[in-house]
């Protein structure tokens, strides 16, 4: 039996790694992967609470979140490819068209 606090700690650390990646990396692809990591940390929380509470809702919604993550990756990668085609870069520092 896994204690809830251990799961929450791991999930929190995973989420922090995701946020750190989004803040410090410049490659748009890696930023997308960090967003995925954050979604997975949230999923881990869902499942931990489902396990703790005995409710099936957490697992059902974790499955739904997984589907949303797949949709998000498809759109995000399409955006990256379109961006690369137009600007020839995926570094977020070089994408400053809207900067005044």
């Amino acid at each position: 039996m896994v204690s809830l606090n251990a799961v929450l700690l791991i999930s929190f650390l995973l989420f922090s790694i995701g946020i750190a990646g989004v803040l410090i990396r410049r490659n748009a692809l890696i930023i997308l992967m960090c967003v995925e990591l954050m979604l997975n940390a949230a999923n881990l929380n869902f499942i931990a609470f489902a396990r703790h509470n005995g409710s099936v809702a957490g697992q059902a919604f974790a499955l739904l979140v997984m589907g949303f993550a797949a949709a998000e990756v498809a759109v995000g990668l399409a955006l990256v490819v379109a961006l690369y085609r137009r600007r020839d870069t995926v570094q977020v520092d070089d994408i400053n068209l809207l900067k005044g």
Binding site: S3, N5, A6, A50, G54
Partner: peptide, 10 residues
């Protein structure tokens, strides 16, 4: 590391 609930999915 508190106490954990014993029951599985219900």
């Amino acid at each position: 590391f508190g106490v954990a609930s014993p029951e599985a999915l219900v």
